[in-house]
Amino acid sequence: MSEDTSTRRTHMADAPLLEVREITKFFPIKSGLFGRATNSVRAVDGISFNVLRRETLGIVGESGCGKSTTARLIVDLISPDKGDILFDARRLGTDLTLNELRRNVQMVFQDSYASLNPRLTIEDTIAFGPIIHGVPREYARRLAWELLSKVGLDPKRFAGRYPHEISGGQRQRVNIARALAVKPQIIILDESVSALDKSVEAQVLNLLLDLKKELDLTYIFISHDLNVVKFMADRVIVMYLGEIVEVGPVESIYAETAHPYSRSLLASMPSMDPDHRSEHVALAGDPPNPIIPPSGCRFHPRCPIAIPKCKTEKPLLHIQKTRGHLAACHLTAQQQETF
């Protein structure tokens, strides 16, 4: 059996390591005396994507677009209403248990303090996962020390400390070590460097690059910071109001942006050039309400180039022949036909 899986792995080197199929999550809004669900927030609305082995997949979008919900759905921290998660071609719930999935897919969160147990020492925090998964205590402790030096913290100084005794950057290193402790293949980094100062952020990004190379890791890198995603990711998914609007290789997305939303998002980045400051607002208004999302293309009320069709008909993700990536926009679809 074990031989069987190993041959399957070598044969399917190009097959996706993780597949997300048509996943949907609506959060009910309860109101009134009996707390009946009167409406729902459409956080993630039927999205599908693959994560390839050894790649870094970036997910970008504004707050409320469903980035973090997607991350939590992948590791089943919240259960989807519909849809499947497949790891290594095995479907969660049938031939893959939740324990197996979580041993292979770990997560690092934004708030380094809230995600650590304040009553466990750093060493115990890191050893906790392996012990749960059946590793003997003594061995788990030794592993914790190894991992601490791997993430650049001297175990002699840090192993016995509590989370409140160390700085934010150090805490995030501990979170990374904890994620690595169960030897996962995928790490989901949900805004993991967003709360850090720039100089510390750069240190942690370097650490992530080194670990990826050394341990053959696959990353799902979620961030609202387009610069960091451009630096880290191989492929990028752009999300808007619970849907994927554009997906493809990072160079193609940043250089040959197809979807008007992605284009305005990129144009909202500060220019970094004092001689060419941004002169106009690329994207007016706030993101609309995900409770009652707009009809048709969800971006149409804010879109500068919307046509009547956008209001009524929902565009599907389709390949951009001239660009080499996927986008969901009626107008780029029309341009395709004229080529």
Partner: peptide, 18 residues
């Protein structure tokens, strides 16, 4: 550290320590 002109995936020059 602000990724000003950083090349993708190449280690950044960082300020060590805190």
């Amino acid at each position: 550290a602000n990724l000003h002109g950083a090349e993708r995936g190449k280690r950044l020059e960082t300020i060590p320590g805190s």
